[in-house]
């Protein structure tokens, strides 16, 4: 934005009307150059201060023995790759890594499919569609700490509402240990995260659907394409750009999910829901192993960057296709 505005200014500042004196043009050029640099400065300073510096700091911390004392005296001895060696040797890291992938992929798949289904559903006009759609946003509006506490009650094995209902329907007699069993806890946390993510997907897809002209569906229905066929040949291709945005934002949001897991299980039971984000948090802020915490979060940054690169590739390709 800033760059374009500055360039626009530069263009209008070089008038072709009179043949200008050579020196004057040079100073004018230099002046517009300085002006555009000043326009860029806030954005560059912001990026350097609030994005660049923390990332550089995090990268360097990963190579340091960064302790509680470091905060006070600034001394953090270099330890080379020791933090990374410790990280890869730790049995928890591989669990956290695979949990992170399962959590991210399953959460996004669930949010995506259900969000899209709801968006298509709400595209039809029916009584009370507006208020119901507004209610669907509720999970998005709740603070995650509250969401965590509520779902912890709902999923409680002995007195949680969900098991009570299942018991009343005679689907289970002993209660399902949603959050208490290492084999179920990750699934339960994913289900809660899907519930939280549906409104976001619904909203983006819904607005994406608004931009598809009704005429397309009318024309298609004359040709006999309705229902699933209309979805496959009109809705889905027309939603492609929106789909890319939803997927990439979804991946980045989901990779770093922390509060909901801390609230539900704190990474337990027996590390069953430990992800890279919770592991990094626990290493840094409960075990005071800041260097190792930074090493784990650097891995997280790397994964996010990979996805960002894939996204840029995809969007460039789709732009080229257009």
């Amino acid at each position: 934005m800033t760059l374009q505005a500055a360039q626009g200014g530069a263009v209008s500042a070089a008038p072709p009307s009179r043949i200008p004196d050579r020196r004057r043009v040079l100073t004018m050029r230099r002046r517009t150059w300085i002006a555009s640099a000043l326009f860029l400065l806030p954005a560059v300073a912001y990026i350097v201060l609030f994005f660049g510096a923390p990332i550089v700091k995090n990268l360097t911390m990963g190579f340091q023995d960064y302790t509680t004392a470091t905060f006070y005296n600034g001394e953090a001895p270099w330890v080379g790759f020791q933090n990374y060696v410790d990280m890869f040797e730790s049995p928890v890291f591989s669990i956290a890594l695979s949990n992170t992938f399962v959590f991210t992929i399953a959460s996004i798949a669930g949010q995506f499919v259900i969000g899209l289904a709801f968006a298509v559903f709400f595209r039809r006009r029916f009584p009370l569609a507006g208020p119901i759609r507004a209610l669907m946003l509720l999970p998005w509006l709740l603070p995650l700490i509250v969401t965590g506490a509520i779902w912890k009650w709902l999923l409680d094995k002995d007195s949680g509402a969900i098991n009570r209902i299942l018991e009343a329907l005679h689907l289970t007699s002993t209660g399902i240990p949603w959050l208490d069993s290492p084999s179920l806890a990750l699934l339960s946390v994913i289900l809660v995260n899907i519930w939280i993510g549906i409104p976001f997907n619904l909203t983006i897809f819904y607005s994406g659907l608004q931009s598809i002209p009704d005429e397309l569906y009318e024309a298609a229905s004359l040709d006999g394409a309705t229902g699933w066929k209309a979805f496959r040949h009109i809705t889905w291709p027309m939603l492609r750009p929106v789909t890319n945005v939803v997927l990439v934002l979804g991946v980045v949001y989901t990779l770093k999910v922390l509060d909901i897991i801390l609230g539900l299980t704190n990474g337990g039971p027996a590390n069953a829901t430990q992800t890279l984000a919770t592991l990094s948090y626990n290493l840094s802020f409960t075990q005071f192993e800041f260097g190792q915490g930074a090493a784990v979060s650097n891995v997280l940054i790397l994964i996010s960057l990979l996805f960002a690169a894939v996204y840029l590739r995809l969007s460039r390709r789709s732009e080229a296709a257009e």
């Binding site: 200014g9 209008s12 500042a13 002046r31 517009t32 002006a35 000043l38 400065l41 806030p42």
Partner: peptide
């Protein structure tokens, strides 16, 4: 037309820098 545009640009840029400062 021309001088005004640059002046506006200068003022805007300077105030942006001032806010940052």
């Amino acid at each position: 037309m021309k001088p005004r545009t640059t002046r506006v640009a200068w003022i805007a840029a300077a105030s942006a820098a001032a806010v940052l400062g």
